[in-house]
Design a protein around this nucleic acid. Sequence first.
DNA 1: CACACGATGCGCT
DNA 2: GCGCATCGTGTGG
Length: 213
Amino acid sequence: MTPLTRRFYSRSTLVVARALLGKVLYHRVGGRLLSGRIVEVEAYTDDAASHARWSRRTPRNAVMFGPAGHAYVYFTYGMHHCVNIVTESNGRPGAVLLRGLDCLRAGAPARDGSGPGRLCRALGITLSQNGLDLTTGETLWIADGRRARRERIVQTTRIGIRVAEKLRWRFYLLGSDGVSRRDRSAEAPQREMAPTCRIAGTTRSASAGGRRR
DNA sequence: CACACGATGCGCT
DNA sequence: GCGCATCGTGTGG
């Protein structure tokens, strides 16, 4: 229940992204405490797919440039909210998108926490939480959770973007129910392709379809 | 001011 | 796999 410190968030986005897996997100709202275990995240910095691309500051993405440990919430497709955790040092844009939660509440369907939009709906996160400081433990915060030492982290590409699509900046906990989209090939123990496997015709054209949305 | 479009999710084929 | 709801935001005139 003790909020993670500013120091935890003030690191490189990729490091924080991985470190957030297994942690627990809390939101105190309407006299209730909602929570869920973080099982899927994506990193965004100033890359081409980021709201802070080319380090361009706008009213919407301003929080990404501010101090780490704050919530960056945005509204998209006219109906969904997505929540990010701001990283890096002040002035450098960076945030971790939360895409999957486990165990929102006993008996809740697993899919309620699966996907950035449903996740926000399940925890009651909207634009009014944008900019909140997560280190105070008042309304919205993240605390340590149980993370089994054996639990494997899968690293793969981010979802739903059309540029910088080769960056493997999505991380999830293998076997968790809240993961929105699995990547079987990334889950395979052997990740690196041996040179002999690159002979034409012997490789499956990985993710040939489904890249466009 | 006008307009194109999206870090999604859902229902249907 | 495909279409689409629905509106805040960024961009350009």
